[in-house]
Design a protein around this nucleic acid. Structure first.
Lengths: 244, 244
DNA sequence: CGTCGTGGTATGTCTAGACATATTGATCGC
DNA sequence: GCGATCAATATGTCTAGACATACCACGACG
């Protein structure tokens, strides 16, 4: 019966009671000492299970009061945005990458100045393709203050996304996902009609408050979807499924 | 100095060494018994800190071998998709909601049949607006097998999203985010041009493998962005920022 | 040379306590 | 009635052990 460790079984039992509605939001869970008796184990084991429930946001714990089922707040999902190369090859397609432009320059607006932090920027444009069909147009800025080694990298051979993922860790990121019509230049490079709907992903990352990179990727809307999965049992995610 | 509990300090110290690059990916962390000596605490305390690092994906632990810094895999972000009403009012705008159509019917294709699971479906169309400007067109199907009470709800007054969030818990969800040009009907309802780029969010949710609902929300690309944040210190997210 | 045990080791799980801390609910004084 | 105080209580943190389990390295044996 008891497949895994006891604390996991306690976790699962309580999770089931919450998700099935048997324990409604706001209701109090059994006290730790009650669960100790129910399962015949020590308090540390019970507490580990409850702590995991709390870490996942299913319950909130209050001293003296007890542990309560949390109010459902929002749909939340884990969005994974892996390296495009890995993603395309995993789909069984041939990945292609081409560097279009590369210049080193100073910041041109306040947002870029924040990224530059007094130093200069590397400004790259490149194109990713799957089976020779353009998949994404990428415009990337790299802050040379945070990532000075970038200046020595040959981005004709390695895409900036791959290099940064391996070389420059980040602590914070903001992803902005929107839709826009393709402008004339983007449309030509992506081989789509001008004004065609595109998915636009903008990502900015920082390491300890210092800007590392900001990137804007434009995907033709009919060639790419982002997919975010959520499972309360175990959360995972993937991106870039082929369109249905 | 020691602000909080010891296990958190150990966690933070190790996290800093990983994110700063002092401990590169693949490198082995100190053994638990070494950390015990370093911090002068018991193994349980050290293990709690390491377990939290592992839960966050910063390290992987292998019996007999030790604990190792994980390879950075992918950009991952926590995407929160809250209730549209809460989102709009939080932005200081007036939320508007209108039910356009509501019918009860049987499934019309294989995907709908999976959701229906032998029972019938509730098929709703509604429009969300912010300050009287259309923000999202929503087409929603509710599986009456999983959510039979839905048939008695007055969706002219309460939006299906709000009702489901409170009444029908789910255990798994899949979100698909893409871009598409508005078709004629959607364009008219959203008061945009036909073919204008729109963000399209499709979400399907299940409870214990039984389909609860599937929804497709269409947002004008110039009125709505999804935002997903990630911070290694503490992950959170929000959605629906006004466009810059 | 290859293969099968076998022992050592680091983590995984768990116990039976201890003290700390925050919060609640009741009691007391005004 | 109302506010301040105080004790009861549930969780938060931690200890010093114990045994289990997986895995690697090494050695013995075919």
């Amino acid at each position: 019966m008891s497949a895994g460790p006891l604390h996991r079984r306690i976790y699962s039992d309580l999770e089931d009671r919450i998700l099935s509605g048997a324990l409604a939001p706001g209701r109090r869970l059994p006290f730790e000492h009650e669960l100790m008796q129910d399962y015949g184990c020590s308090r540390a084991t019970v507490s580990k299970a409850l702590s995991e429930l709390a870490a996942r946001g299913l319950v909130t714990r209050r001293r003296r009061a007890g542990t309560f089922v949390a109010q459902p707040k929002a749909h939340a999902a884990f969005l994974a945005i892996p390296d495009l190369r890995a993603e395309v090859t995993e789909r069984g397609q041939v990945y292609g990458y081409r560097l279009l432009t590369q210049i080193e320059r100073g910041p041109a607006d306040p947002a870029e100045a924040e990224l530059a932090a007094g130093a200069r920027l590397l400004d790259l444009t490149c194109l990713h393709s799957a089976d020779s069909i353009p998949l994404a147009l990428e415009r990337r800025l790299i802050g040379l203050k945070a990532a000075p080694q970038a200046i020595a990298v040959d981005f004709k051979r390695v895409s900036p996304g791959s290099w940064l993922l391996e070389s420059e860790p980040w602590t914070e990121a903001e992803n902005r996902i929107g839709a826009m019509g393709a402008d004339a230049k983007s449309a030509r490079l992506l081989q789509i009609k001008r004004g065609a709907a595109c998915l636009c992903v903008e990502r900015r990352t920082w390491r300890d408050g210092l800007g590392v990179t900001q990137v804007r990727q434009i995907f033709p809307g009919d060639r790419y979807d982002l997919v975010a999965l959520f499972s309360s049992a175990r959360s995972g995610g993937r991106a870039g499924e082929p369109r249905r």
